[in-house]
Write a protein that binds this DNA or RNA. Sequence first.
DNA 1: TATGAATGAGATTTCATTCAT
DNA 2: CATGAATGAAATCTCATTCAT
Lengths: 220, 220, 220, 220
Amino acid sequence: MTRVTAAAPAPGCQVPKPRADAVRNRERILAAAREMLVEHGAHVPFDEIARRAGVGNATLYRHFPDRVTLVHQVVLYVMDRVTALAEDALAEEPDAFAALCRFAHAAADERIGALCPMLSDDFDHEDPELLAASAALNEVSERLMATGQQAGVLRADVAVGDLMIALSQLSRPLPGTACLDAAPFVHRHLQLFLDGLRAPARSELPGAPVTFDDLKQKTM
Amino acid sequence: MTRVTAAAPAPGCQVPKPRADAVRNRERILAAAREMLVEHGAHVPFDEIARRAGVGNATLYRHFPDRVTLVHQVVLYVMDRVTALAEDALAEEPDAFAALCRFAHAAADERIGALCPMLSDDFDHEDPELLAASAALNEVSERLMATGQQAGVLRADVAVGDLMIALSQLSRPLPGTACLDAAPFVHRHLQLFLDGLRAPARSELPGAPVTFDDLKQKTM
Amino acid sequence: MTRVTAAAPAPGCQVPKPRADAVRNRERILAAAREMLVEHGAHVPFDEIARRAGVGNATLYRHFPDRVTLVHQVVLYVMDRVTALAEDALAEEPDAFAALCRFAHAAADERIGALCPMLSDDFDHEDPELLAASAALNEVSERLMATGQQAGVLRADVAVGDLMIALSQLSRPLPGTACLDAAPFVHRHLQLFLDGLRAPARSELPGAPVTFDDLKQKTM
Amino acid sequence: MTRVTAAAPAPGCQVPKPRADAVRNRERILAAAREMLVEHGAHVPFDEIARRAGVGNATLYRHFPDRVTLVHQVVLYVMDRVTALAEDALAEEPDAFAALCRFAHAAADERIGALCPMLSDDFDHEDPELLAASAALNEVSERLMATGQQAGVLRADVAVGDLMIALSQLSRPLPGTACLDAAPFVHRHLQLFLDGLRAPARSELPGAPVTFDDLKQKTM
DNA sequence: TATGAATGAGATTTCATTCAT
DNA sequence: CATGAATGAAATCTCATTCAT
């Protein structure tokens, strides 16, 4: 299993020193931002995120010069963790459909909805770090679905993009509800959706299977 | 079929004069607000709504003294139209599951996601107009589901609340996508969800069936 | 004499209504901004300008969305007044060199230094209003200098740009001094410069005569 | 010729160690600060000066505890160099007016405008180092002017303060122009001003000759 | 000593709401 | 009634200065 974002510096490199407290602050800000963004939407005041992270607001600006950058880093952060969940499900769950379900529910709990900003028009899909992380998630989730389709337990007319979109939509916080845990039906409706994915297909789907790359198209 | 929100004044009442342009302005504001709220979330500046509606901002305030009121009226506006869609589906579609599907897809197109603010903590569920509209929608949609369950084409462990929530979530515009039409996979994923609703049930669902009334609970 | 910026609306035009108080506020802001910008440089807090003008800060933003716009309008405002001074000097002062001196000292008192931002790299020289005002000032000041040169009282190797630049430089507030009136030597040094302009030329000048258009070149 | 600011420690003193890199850093900061202050005014962020000097911001603070101190040292730095230029002109240029011109143009190139902060209300004129450097510059520049006036080539109604002020004003970078070299007309207008200084006087000057000491008066 | 990081105070800008025409 | 203008409060962002490594 490869963690993408935690790129280790080459041994003997000249980068001065990462300074422990700065790293810890960065982590704390990312974690706080993920919660705030998922729970309260993209409009949370920066000061609130800073307070939740326990740092001054200017510290937040030092690490993430603007909102776009912060969101971008949160996406990377969550994507990395979700990728790990998919790898775990594949490795530990022998039944193909069970693996898919395990992944889906775990990803919802891991706030996969935080990946939604990727779909935004102004999201930078060319960023190298994102491309790498994205490819990793794409690879493992395609493996997850292919396994199910080859085993004949997953309908053939769906692709990873379908899963990712619906997963994100269904696990997004309902407006006005304070946090994800306060929406106990997420797992219910997710399970209904997963039942719809199970083979044999029960109806014809409009449109074509959505791949991961489709999500990067500006023109959806 | 009863339209709830267009309450006609009692005959012989003394309400001065409805003034044609005021009525037209109210309609334009409601339509504009529905689009803006669904597309850009609850944070759209009032001035933007006013501009989209083609009226001055103060006119908007004259019709809707505050954001809460405006949102409330938009909910009523959409709820009324969605109710009509359910009635039409029931009346014109002989097959029970086909009726459900027709309703779901039509409601998505009608921006049923604009009902989400109902789930917000600060939404006033005691308002008489809302109670009436709500009861009407509840009645017809329960009839829609009951028909399907009695016909054995709809799994028995789901209720209207499940449908409404998931429908809203799946049809909400993805962040950054300007309008619903720009998200062509909404109907794909909605259909997958509908396939999950079809009997026989393929897996056990966590939690209990969600009724319409469950959605009014402040503590979700 | 033609005032350029105070463009009168065509009779019978459809522009709604200028609203007296808004016009008065705009005037007050422009006057206040001219003083603050000339006295304290381009970094004066917007709130200070608003306070000096006696309006709320947001009112300032309504009239001038950003600092660039405000500065631009101040330039137009001052340019118009300086143009009028040149016209007056030409019309009322029979002696050519006396007219030039009268104009120079009056322009210094009128804060011609406020035109300095025109020389900045990010100043928009393409704006139609500015082009018109600029042409008017150019025309009258060239007439002013040509008169002197034809009368043989003004050295021939200088052009309007030379006058404008030096005039602006010499009348700019010295850093740290509160206001122009507190720099009583402005008129002394201006007169020394004017003496240097008088014919016959006492030394050869480096470079070429600077025209008005030269000042618009980004590459100075 | 006495260099004032490079005060050598008394022989036998106990100052620990000058540390070569600290001295070099101090030089680099002073040079960078002179450029930034002259080019972008007194408002340049400290961090920018530090970046331009190639040191960390805290290093800047170690050498110069606050902005006032930094500006003060820059003034001393430039004053010392300008004094040297005046001495050179006097020593090497036999013609009195030529010496004045040579000095003026050289001082402009040496950024004499960096002395302007001396005129600021909050500048400390009592500092011993400054008093010494100031006296030295005053002495040599008075000698420069007296020579010219005794030779009858420089008008009698001007004093060193007039020269210093006008020189500073005319050589200050125009707003938006990045560096002095980008303003090719500085020497043109300076020469015009010098022509105005030449005897015989062509007009009467308002005000009285400005001495060096006049510039120290808080109330100008 | 040199430095990057942290921070609060203040500057800039936006927006919901009220006011005057 | 309809509207553009005005406004304070809050959000975003910058920067001089201090701190910790």
